[in-house]
C-alpha cells in the first residue's frame, strides 16, 4: 500500500501515540529572480520549519498557535501527506506519511467545497472516491448532515449557503469517512464572531462523541484554549515547537468557561509564550518591507 513501515520509531507504545513528528524541516525554493535576506545574506531559499518534534496521542485534541507565516499550515500539509518534508518525517501509527493517508481528513479555512455539488453530494464525495455504494454513502452522508443541523439543506449548492453552513458541510465531509486524524487549518477564521463561537461548541460536542485525534491550527488564543487538551506554541519562522501547554479544563466545556479564572490564567500563559515570537515575526516583516521599499 501507500505506507512503508518505519522501524524502529523512537516513540512510545503505538497504541497511545497516533502522530509523531521527528525533526521535520521544510525549506521552500523561491522562483527564479526572487530572493530574501536572511541574517544579512541574500538567499533564494526560505527555511519555514527547522526541526519540529511533536507526539500527539490517540484521541487528543491539539491546537497549534504561532505567529503568521510560521509554517503551521505547512506542518498540517506534511501530516496530511500533501507536501514532503525536506528533512525528518511525520508518521501516523508508526508509518511514515508519504502521500494522503486514508485515515486522515483535512478541513480548510476556505471550506474547499465543490461548488457544483450539493451539500449532500459534497459529504458523499470522499465515500464515493473510496468506492462506497450509492445507497450506503447517501445514508451516511445524510447522517452527518443531520449531525450538523443541516437537515433540509441537502440539495443546496455551496453558493446558496452561509459561511457557517458551508464550514459545517466541510466538517461533515471530513468526518464522513471516520478519520483517525482530523487536520483543521484555521477552519473558523473566515467566520463572524458569533458563528465562530457556535461552531466551536458544535465541534467539541461532536468530537466528544467520536474522540478522533484533532490537530487544529488557529490564530485565536481563546479558540486554542477552549478546544484543546494541549496547546502547541510555535516559534517565529523558521519554526520549531517553543512550548506545549496542557489545558486542564473540565469537559464538556461550555462557552462560559472563558470567563473563569483558570481560563484567564491560560490566556496569560499562552500570550506570554507567544509575545516574543510575534514581535520577532513582526520585526522580520518590517525588515522585509524595508528591503522591498
Amino acid at each position: 500500500m501507500s505506507l512503508a513501515p518505519v522501524s524502529p520509531l523512537p516513540v512510545g507504545a503505538p497504541d497511545t501515540n497516533r502522530i509523531a513528528l521527528r525533526d521535520v524541516r521544510k525549506t521552500f525554493q523561491l522562483k527564479p529572480g526572487q530572493s530574501v535576506t536572511l541574517d544579512g545574506r541574500l538567499s533564494d531559499r526560505i527555511p519555514v520549519l527547522s526541526g519540529v518534534d511533536l507526539d500527539i496521542r490517540q484521541g487528543e485534541f491539539v491546537t497549534i498557535v504561532g505567529p503568521s507565516g510560521s509554517g503551521k499550515s505547512v506542518l498540517l500539509d506534511i501530516i496530511a501527506g500533501l507536501t514532503q518534508a525536506t528533512n525528518g518525517f511525520a508518521a501516523i501509527d508508526g508509518h511514515k506519511v508519504s502521500r494522503p493517508h486514508r485515515e486522515t481528513a483535512y478541513v480548510f479555512q476556505q471550506y474547499a467545497l465543490f461548488p457544483w455539488r450539493t451539500a449532500l453530494q459534497n459529504i458523499e464525495y470522499p465515500l464515493e472516491v473510496r468506492g462506497v455504494g450509492r445507497a450506503a454513502r447517501r445514508e451516511r452522508a445524510q447522517h452527518f448532515l443531520n449531525l450538523f443541523g443541516l437537515k433540509g439543506f441537502e440539495d443546496r449548492y455551496p453558493s446558496q449557503l452561509s459561511g457557517g453552513m458551508q464550514q459545517r458541510v466541510a466538517i461533515a465531509r471530513a468526518l464522513a469517512t471516520d478519520p483517525q486524524v482530523l487536520l483543521m487549518d484555521e477552519p473558523f477564521a473566515a467566520l463572524d464572531a458569533q458563528t465562530r463561537d457556535i461552531l466551536q461548541s458544535e465541534l467539541l460536542r461532536i468530537w466528544e462523541q467520536i474522540r478522533t485525534t484533532v490537530v487544529f491550527v488557529t490564530h485565536s488564543i481563546d479558540e486554542a484554549i477552549f478546544l484543546a487538551d494541549r496547546i502547541v506554541v510555535m516559534t517565529a519562522r523558521p519554526a520549531q515547537v517553543k512550548e506545549t501547554i496542557a489545558v486542564d479544563l473540565p469537559r464538556p466545556r461550555d462557552i462560559e468557561i472563558r470567563n473563569s479564572a483558570a481560563f484567564n490564567a491560560y490566556r496569560a500563559r499562552v500570550w506570554d509564550a507567544l509575545r516574543e515570537e510575534v514581535s520577532k515575526a513582526q520585526r522580520d516583516w518590517a525588515l522585509a518591507s524595508a528591503y522591498n521599499a
Binding site: 496530511a80 500533501l82 494522503p100 486522515t104 465543490f114 472516491v129 465531509r173
Partner: peptide, 27 residues
C-alpha cells in the same frame, strides 16, 4: 488549486481528479 488540494487530501485518484474535479470545474 484548493479544490485539487482538497480532493487529494481525500485520497482522490488521478482518474477521479479528472472526472470528478477538473471536468466539472471546467463545465
Amino acid at each position: 488549486p484548493l479544490h485539487i488540494k482538497a480532493a487529494r487530501s481525500m485520497g482522490t485518484s488521478d482518474w477521479d481528479l479528472f472526472a470528478k474535479v477538473i471536468l466539472p470545474s471546467a463545465v
